[in-house]
Design a protein around this nucleic acid. Structure first.
Lengths: 274, 274
DNA sequence: TCTTGTGTATATGGTAACCATATACCTTAT
DNA sequence: ATAAGGTATATGGTTACCATATACACAAGA
């Protein structure tokens, strides 16, 4: 006569919700989700309907609200403002979906990159015939003071990030004169490889023979690799005839425990035979 | 001659990455992302390429990896296992996108619900003519011992949750006999409203006149509201002629600070005129 | 040149949302 | 009747930061 159907213990309810009992204790403690009642033995009892509350809590948590915020929201002090909040959250969810889709692309790209890396020999220099490629270029920063150059670069990178174009590798362009002068850290532009040709205004290209080498380790020691490539070129009867393009890989099978030792920069310098 | 372009200070780099300086200090400390180098004055210097690393870190964080896991991953101890990990993470991202899309629906539903609630008077009982509705029903738990009933309910709810059908409200069906006997907590089935008619095997319906009332507050005091509805029916010249359907999560503008006091259970009992 | 505002570095303590563990009690199944 | 397993509370620990305080560095103007 006083049967109570669909009443769950803490363990059952936790299982149902896909969390640990601890979490429910916590929610009880902070008053976010208290059990319907306690039995005489002190055991918590949750009802079916509370599963629904939990689902809402879980959802709000998922979209980045803190438990305190959620508690306030569930107070429903004003239904109108609740609707407003939900409308706002709807936008956030849309953005998150977009971000996740971007992440998907990023992962695919990284996988491709690693697969390529598996085929590569980072210790050898080569001369390669390369096709034209299209880049989105930053403004020229060569003749700017370092401070200003940094600002321009920042704006460029922020823009690219914001537009979701930060999927492929970023690169740096070093002009022939700087390469020849050994002024390797004096970039003239940053760039991104792109397949979107509608970004036409800021595009540059290259095609022909390139010396390809890989620099392992810090940015600061890249001159060493450049010098080695130059030696290699002399030996092979080539000389620099254009700009250098640096792209960043950082996927070397890591013997080293130090993260940054695994950084690899791909260097491509336009060359021709003597 | 020794110009260094695109080198960022901690503040700049933080801005670029969309985080606080503190976060970068933290990553430096735990060895996850150390600056390329330190100037003589002790200032951290980050390179463009490190933005790329940060983006990967951020992405991996987004999909639920801990900083320690990320650090290990970036060690690239084995490129093959790195690819495997990424492939696994790809699946997770897919799932997350699905979940987010589900969340979108949920939010829309809650908004609709709140909008409806704004029109309602929770203090009045009414007799309403209602159309046929289709429900996904759980197994009958009426004649099961409470323990077993709970288990069956759990399986039902878990199934619904897993299938992503936990968008609309859950409800409980109390049979006429239990309603008449005052055994209001002795559900015979749980149900979900549904628009998917392909779930045909587990469907139930109803159509006709219903007494509609709202119970505010705890599950345990629902009998009070039932008794009031019964009084109301007698006064109006109606009597119970079918089952009662309870649905949850109609929200009330919260006068109370206690979360659970603001929840409302909608009670619909099939009735006919005397 | 001095100053003043802004930037950086380190150190320390604090926070949210749990998780792990220990201890004690309760319940059910054999 | 006893063991296995579930529940309750208490306490300390964890992760990924954030806030604040203090000290030093740098750039720009009076």
């Amino acid at each position: 006569m006083d049967s109570k159907k669909s009443i769950f213990t803490t363990g059952e309810f936790a299982d149902l919700c896909g969390v640990k009992k601890q979490t429910l204790f916590h929610y009880d403690e902070i008053g976010l989700l208290k059990p319907e009642y306690r039995s005489e033995n002190g055991y918590r009892s949750y009802s079916v309907h509370q599963v629904e509350i939990f689902i809402v809590i879980d959802m709000l948590k998922e979209i980045g609200m803190s438990l305190t915020e959620i508690k306030n929201f569930l107070q429903f002090k004003s239904l109108k403002s609740s609707i407003e909040l939900l409308t706002e959250k709807e936008k956030i969810v849309k953005m998150k979906i977009k971000k996740m889709q971007h992440t998907q692309k990023l992962i695919q790209n990284k996988k491709k990159q690693i697969k390529e890396a598996l085929q590569l020999n980072f210790d050898r220099f080569t001369i390669e015939e390369m096709d034209t490629e299209w880049y989105v270029l930053s403004e020229n920063i060569l003749n700017l003071p370092d401070k200003d150059a940094t600002k321009v670069s920042m704006l460029f990178l922020k823009y690219m990030k914001q537009e979701g174009l930060f999927i492929d590798n970023a690169g740096a362009l070093i002009r022939q004169e700087q390469v020849e002068a050994g002024d390797y850290l004096n970039y003239s532009n940053l760039y991104f490889r792109t397949h979107q040709l509608d970004l036409a205004e800021k595009i540059s290209k290259k095609s022909g023979k390139y010396a390809v080498g890989y620099h392992k380790g810090s940015y600061l020691t890249i001159h060493e690799t450049y010098e080695k490539i130059k030696d290699y070129l002399t030996k092979e009867g080539y000389r620099v005839c254009g700009h250098s393009f640096e792209e960043f890989l950082y996927v070397m099978e890591g013997a080293s425990l130090s993260v940054e030792d695994n950084y690899v920069t791909k260097i491509m310098i336009k060359v021709e035979e003597n």
